[in-house]
Design a protein around this nucleic acid. Structure first.
Length: 690
DNA sequence: GCATCCCATGTACCT
DNA sequence: ACAGGTACATGGGATGCG
């Protein structure tokens, strides 16, 4: 009987492929499929070939041995006679690969088994909508159904939880679990958790420090997880018994930011199970897509094919340069500025110029590996952007759409980033440099065209151009972008139309302005900022709120005269209000917390940074602190000689009002300095302080 | 002997 | 194990001062 559903998870267990499918009625079904792992080996000569074939004939681990013609290098593209070894088990596979790879080139040998199964046998991306049939739980056939135009993600349910610990006889113990439901939070006792999970029956469970916590939970609850390979299952691919377990912070985003839609997008691009797609970084994810595309085309995957030739230093200096930029004038308030951006500049360059690892200069017209891997996804992202325009702001559909767009953006940008990276199996520095060269060329051309049309260049960086012209309106800027698109062959569009815009001064020398540090207000009345305090994650909420308010009060006016007359006055009032709030000790300490990530083990810190000191305090209180944790702390005595006495993690002591006044002033000053607006003297405010 | 400046270094965050 | 860039604290040594 034919059934329909979505491919929730796939993994290899006990030498069998296990597929979990979420059916349309919401039920979950587990189906198995046979899997015989295989790889290739290249004989050195005919004697060697004979020996390999002989030695494997009746070997206990081999199921079948055969010769096949395969392409083994993207650079050469010619077929080579390889020996294909099909093994009886994952164990046998590992033994044979280890033995043969000592003296031979082996192929398809360093991919995960689930990848080999998906690429060679199932050939359907996990999370896809599928039609299938099974007999007694054995897969008979499965077909991918098209759901490419549906913005809504598959109906996978997600549950997010947080662990609360308590101290018991000097030992840290899991006490209860906080579970986040759509809008509410409630706690579940440890012993009730498994019942609760069974009741809610989520497909995806999001939990902090996924692997350790998940394993411990399952072991604590004696849930048939004693077997080593099941523990491996959880650790390596984040799935267990039809549920996907992922960490709460995934590749730079939280699980919510990705959303199921974003994760599905990543899984489909990587041709990977959701749990793996959620934990693998971009290099591996893109490698996965590359390998799939190559295997589909008759390639055997080499262990490494990274290319970098030795070159003269002067040649390097000439070629290996990043994007150019024109430093903006700081200290003045620009009016009527437009920012024009090349859309997906790097991916478009790679495609248009046919640049790829194997053809770094784009000499041949054929589609290279990079284009093969990303072209469909660049097109898909454009389609999603078109769909987004039709979706209402704040609607669920729009959010799904945006999650997909963001996930693809990361993949596309990263495919440029890894093009010349030595960790990339197929990487080639020449390709990377050539992309940069075209990027420079394009932005130079854009600059030239804008100047020809009488626009003043305010700022120009890798893929964006800030221009202004007296009396120019939105349509003028749009047609300029249009012209640049046509002449460079790379799509460019108007991003923001600023009423007022200012660039931050470089803190190090105070003169030239900083790259990518600006703020302004658009004609839609929206504040836009890059790089300044209010955009920084480690700055206290109170300071960020202040700076946003300060900029709004200063710039939300119709003319520069009004900014000077009214804006400056009301902004100064905001500054005074916030300063007195700090001075009077009225600010909620939670609003003054700095957040900083612990990026290595505590004992590895050479410098006693404030957040590492805070982390030590937390540890002494019995909290568990680990790499990757975000430390929340605030300053109680910033100038204390002893770094350990400067900070606190819990708001039991009064904050250091001098310190917070100082950074508030800095946040205000960097705005005023950037605009060049004269305040009599910022010392005035300091007087009010002491 | 102590405060202050200078600067390399370490660390984290942003685009 | 994406690249490239900035900001800013720390702490040891140099310098200044009494």
């Amino acid at each position: 009987m034919q059934e329909y559903g979505w491919l929730l998870d796939v993994y290899i267990q006990d030498n069998t492929a296990v597929l979990w499918i979420k059916r349309e009625d919401g039920s979950l079904i587990r189906i198995t499929d046979s899997y015989a792992p295989s790889f290739y080996v290249k004989p050195i000569d005919w004697v060697d070939r004979y020996q390999i074939l002989q030695s494997l004939q009746d070997y206990e681990h081999t199921k079948a041995v055969a010769e096949e013609d395969k392409i083994v290098s993207i650079a050469e593209n010619t077929k080579v006679k390889l020996i294909r070894i099909e093994t009886r088990s994952v164990y046998g596979f590992n033994i044979l690969v280890k033995r043969l790879s000592k003296d031979h080139e082996v192929y398809n040998a360093d991919l995960e088994h689930v990848q080999l199964y998906l690429f060679q046998r199932l050939r359907i991306e996990p999370t896809s909508k599928v039609a299938f049939e099974h007999y007694n739980g054995r897969l008979l056939w499965m077909k991918k159904l098209d759901d490419e135009n549906i913005v809504e993600p598959p109906p996978f349910s997600m549950m997010r939880m947080n662990m609360l610990y308590s101290m018991h006889k000097g030992k840290r113990e899991l006490h209860e679990i906080e579970v986040y439901d759509k809008s509410s939070v409630f706690t579940v006792k440890k012993e009730d958790l498994i019942d609760y999970i069974s009741m809610q029956n989520p497909d995806i469970i999001v939990l902090p420090k996924c692997d350790e916590v998940a394993l411990q939970l399952l072991i604590d609850n004696k849930l048939s997880i004693s077997r080593v390979d099941e523990q491996e299952q959880v650790k390596r691919q984040g799935s267990w018994g039809g549920r996907i377990l992922i960490g709460d912070s995934i590749i730079g985003h939280s699980a919510e930011q990705w959303g199921i839609a974003g994760l599905v997008e990543r899984a489909r691009f990587g041709f990977l199970p959701l749990g793996i797609a959620a934990r693998w970084l971009s290099n591996k994810t893109i490698d996965s897509r590359n390998c799939y595309e190559l295997m589909k085309r008759g390639y055997a995957i080499p262990r490494e094919e990274y290319f970098e030739s030795a070159r003269q230093l002067c040649e390097l200096a000439e070629r290996d340069r990043g994007g150019i930029n024109v430093t903006p004038e700081a200290g003045i308030l620009h009016q009527n500025v437009a920012s024009l951006d090349f859309d997906s500049q790097y991916p478009n360059i790679m495609l248009k110029k046919r640049l790829s690892y194997e053809d770094p200069l784009g000499n041949y017209d054929s589609l290279g590996l990079i284009a093969i891997a990303i072209e469909p996804w660049l097109r898909r992202r454009l389609m999603l952007k078109r769909i987004r325009k039709e979706l209402k702001k704040g609607s669920k559909e729009r959010e799904y759409c945006e999650q997909r767009i963001d996930a693809l953006k990361l993949i596309l940008v990263t495919s440029y980033g890894i093009s010349g990276c030595c960790w990339n199996r197929f990487g080639n520095v020449l390709t990377f440099e050539e992309i940069n060269r075209y990027s420079r060329e394009a932005i130079l051309k854009a600059k030239y065209i804008a100047q020809q049309r009488g626009y003043e260049i305010v700022y120009c960086a890798v893929d964006s151009l800030f221009v202004k012209k007296n009396g120019a309106n939105r349509e003028d800027y749009e047609s300029l972008a249009q012209e640049i698109s046509e002449k460079t062959g790379l799509p460019m569009s108007l991003d923001k139309h600023f009423k007022f815009l200012a660039f931050g001064k470089l803190k190090s020398n105070g003169v030239s302005s900083a790259l990518s540090r600006y703020f302004g207000i658009t004609f839609d009345g929206e504040i836009e900022a890059r790089g300044v305090e209010l955009r920084r994650n480690d700055v206290p909420e109170f300071i960020k709120r202040f700076q946003a308010e300060f900029i709004l009060q200063l710039l939300d006016h119709d003319s520069i005269e009004e900014v000077i007359d009214k804006g400056l006055v009301s902004a100064k009032k905001v500054l005074r209000d916030y300063l007195s709030m700090i001075r009077d000790g009225k600010v909620d300490t939670m609003q003054l917390m700095l957040r900083r990530d612990l990026r290595k083990e505590l004992d590895k810190y050479k410098v006693r940074t404030s957040h590492s000191m805070a982390a030590i305090q937390l540890m002494k209180e019995g909290k568990d602190v680990a790499v990757g944790d975000t430390i929340n702390f605030f300053f109680t005595d910033h100038d204390n000689k002893n770094p350990a006495c400067r900070v606190r993690t819990v708001p039991e002591v009064m904050y250091d009002s001098v310190f917070y006044s100082k950074i508030l002033m800095t946040a205000a000053n960097s705005i005023l300095e950037a605009t060049g607006l004269k305040v009599e003297s910022t010392k005035d405010y300091k007087l009010g302080l002491c």
